[in-house]
Design a binder for these strands. Structure first.
Length: 294
DNA sequence: ACAAGGATAGAAA
DNA sequence: TTTCTATCCTTGT
């Protein structure tokens, strides 16, 4: 089977910035674990065995932000700002502008297609899924492609690949899995390079889930870069205003993280209430995106 | 059918 | 801050 080979070869292909995420991850962890003592940048640098200057470089290379700006981008205040409580109901706005439908969605230019309920219930039977791990700005990324487009994107830290693979593959237990780095690599480059997002032909994405889940994920696709919505916003958007709890569960099952921007769903208070691949990664994504906007 | 459990939210103590 | 509860889609029995 391809599983073994994919696990033994966690790739060192591209991404000269591969190490940067490790640093960023540890900084975020320190900040959130010891948030009481508000460690200064210099303290953190020392703990990591780096000079503040090195840290400066790492952040600007990784996020396009100075360390100070990045740290700000990871606070509760910033999260609240993303929610943009200044009025404009985000999701409806996107709909009115005609950004929905098969055309452009998301800043990444995604065209989405949902699998039929029958195919969903088949648990992937008859489906061929090509997959591989690649380094990404958010750790190791597991990419899963069907002939209808990107079906899965998961993340983990180096060494956790087996669990990550099991998690993703278990979602379509009857599918046929083939490791195919050549196919997945094309997608990876496109997904994590904001410069490639301007491309004219959209990234094909296929949403495999229950009807309810697909509607939730489609709502997520309407959230622009640099904004966020609450779980209840989404519940409103799909016409079931009291189902915010169920929305949370559905968001959590999103198989294509980052591309379907589930990291832009926050609690009403602005708190990051959860993330399937770890809250640290959710913070990192929001911080990284702050760099894209500014 | 039924029961348990979530990445919720709001209210009460 | 912690706890209680209304709510509702999924999944396992």
């Amino acid at each position: 089977m391809s599983l073994a080979s994919s696990l033994q070869n966690p790739t060192t292909d591209i991404t000269p910035e591969g190490d940067d995420y490790e640093t960023v991850r540890r900084v975020i962890e320190m900040l959130t674990l010891d948030y009481r003592e508000q460690p200064a940048l210099e303290t953190i640098a020392v703990r990591l065995g780096q000079s503040p200057t090195q840290l400066q470089k790492t952040f600007t290379r990784w996020a396009g932000l100075s360390p100070k700006a990045f740290l700000q981008a990871v606070t509760l205040d910033h999260a609240k700002r993303l929610l943009g409580n200044e009025g404009l109901p985000l999701l409806e706005t996107a709909l009115e502008l005609g950004l929905s439908g098969p055309g452009r969605l998301h800043d990444l230019f995604v065209s989405h297609e949902a699998m039929s309920p029958g195919e969903w219930k088949a648990k992937g039977a008859g489906l061929t899924i090509r997959h591989a791990f690649h380094p990404s700005p958010f750790g190791q990324a597991l990419v899963m492609i069907t002939d209808r487009g990107l079906a899965g994107l998961g993340f983990c830290d180096p060494g956790e690949e087996p669990a990550c693979y099991a998690d993703m593959a278990g979602r379509w237990p009857l599918a046929h899995f083939v490791e195919d780095r050549a196919t997945t690599e094309i997608y990876v480059k496109r997904i994590f390079d904001p410069n490639a997002w301007q491309a004219e032909q959209p990234l094909r994405v296929v949403l495999i889930g229950s009807d309810f889940q697909v509607r939730v994920w489609q709502s997520l696709l309407q959230i622009p870069l640099g904004r966020a919505v609450t779980y209840s916003d989404i519940a409103q958007n799909i016409g079931q205003p009291t189902a915010s709890r169920a929305v949370g569960a559905a968001v959590g099952r999103n198989p294509i993280s980052f591309v379907v921007p589930c990291h832009r769903a926050l609690g009403k208070s602005g708190a990051l209430t959860g993330y399937h691949w770890g809250l640290t990664r959710k913070r990192a994504m929001l911080g990284w995106e702050a760099g894209c906007v500014g």
